[in-house]
C-alpha cells in the first residue's frame, strides 16, 4: 500500500521548498528525488504510455522549478501532481497531433509489450493480479481525461479526496461524483470485455 513516496530522514519538504525558492537547485532536486516516482506514476496512469509519462514528468519538474514561487503551501505533492497531470494532458495532445495512432492502438501495444507488468508485484496470485491489473489499466485508458486523472490519483497513487481536489482544482463533491462515475465505467468496461476476471474474483 505504502511506498509511493520514498520516506527518508532528510530535511522536510517545507525546508527544501524554502531553500529551492531561494534558487537552490540541490534543494529542488532533493524534492524532485522524493516525488519523481509519484509524478511519473500519475503521468503514466493518465497517458498510459511510458515515454509520454517520462516526458511529462521531466517537463513537470522543470515547470515546478520555474513556478516554485507560485507554490503557497498546502500539499506539495498535490501541487506537483497538478503540474504533472497537466503535462500529461499536454503530452497526449501533442502525440495526438503528431500521429493518427489512436489511444486504443497505443493501449493494445502496451498490452502486448506487457509494459504494465509490475516488477515489484507480490509473488502470490501474481498471474491473476497481473491479468486483472492489465484489464483494469486498459479500461481506465478508455475513460475521459478528467475521470482518468481522478482514478490515477485516488486509486493508483493513494491521494485522499482533499488532495485530489487540490491537485485537480475541483471541489470535493466533484471528486466524489467523478470518481464514482469513473469506477462504475471501469466496472462496466470490464464486464463487457473480461467478465470472467470480475466473476472469478467474486466467487473467491
Amino acid at each position: 500500500m505504502s511506498g509511493s513516496i520514498p520516506v527518508k530522514s532528510s530535511p522536510a519538504d517545507p525546508d527544501l521548498v524554502r531553500e529551492a525558492k531561494k534558487g537552490s537547485l540541490t534543494a529542488f532536486n532533493a524534492l524532485a528525488a522524493r516525488h519523481q516516482t509519484l509524478l511519473y506514476n500519475v503521468a503514466y496512469r493518465v497517458t498510459g504510455n511510458p515515454d509520454l509519462a517520462a516526458d511529462a514528468t521531466q517537463e513537470a519538474l522543470i515547470l515546478a522549478y520555474r513556478r516554485l514561487h507560485q507554490y503557497r503551501g498546502g500539499s506539495l505533492r498535490a501541487w506537483l501532481a497538478r503540474i504533472a497531470t497537466n503535462c500529461a494532458y499536454d503530452q497526449l495532445r501533442a502525440r495526438k497531433r503528431q500521429s493518427t495512432t489512436s489511444l486504443e492502438d497505443m493501449v493494445e501495444e502496451e498490452d502486448r509489450l506487457g509494459a504494465l507488468e509490475d516488477p515489484h508485484a507480490s509473488p502470490e496470485d501474481a498471474a491473476l493480479a497481473t491479468e486483472l491489473g492489465e484489464a483494469i489499466a486498459a479500461a481506465v485508458l478508455t475513460l475521459p481525461e478528467d475521470q482518468r486523472s481522478v482514478i490515477a490519483l485516488v486509486d493508483y497513487n493513494h491521494f485522499d479526496y482533499e488532495e485530489t481536489a487540490q491537485a485537480l482544482d475541483i471541489s470535493l463533491g466533484t471528486v466524489k461524483s467523478r470518481l464514482s462515475r469513473a469506477r462504475a465505467r471501469v466496472r462496466n468496461e470490464l464486464l463487457r470485455r473480461h467478465p470472467e476476471l470480475l466473476a472469478s474474483r467474486m466467487r473467491q
Binding site: 532536486n29 516516482t37 506514476n41 517520462a54 515489484h120 483494469i136 469506477r183 466496472r187 470490464l190 464486464l191
Partner: peptide
C-alpha cells in the same frame, strides 16, 4: 463487490518504476 475488487486491484498495484531519473541539471534551468 465488483468495485471493491477493482479498487483493491488498483491500490495494490505497485508503482511503476520510472525509467530514469528526472532530476534537473543546471542546463535545464
Amino acid at each position: 463487490s465488483d468495485l471493491r475488487c477493482l479498487v483493491d486491484a488498483m491500490r495494490t498495484t505497485a508503482p511503476v518504476r520510472p525509467p530514469r531519473s528526472f532530476l534537473l541539471s543546471p542546463t535545464m534551468v
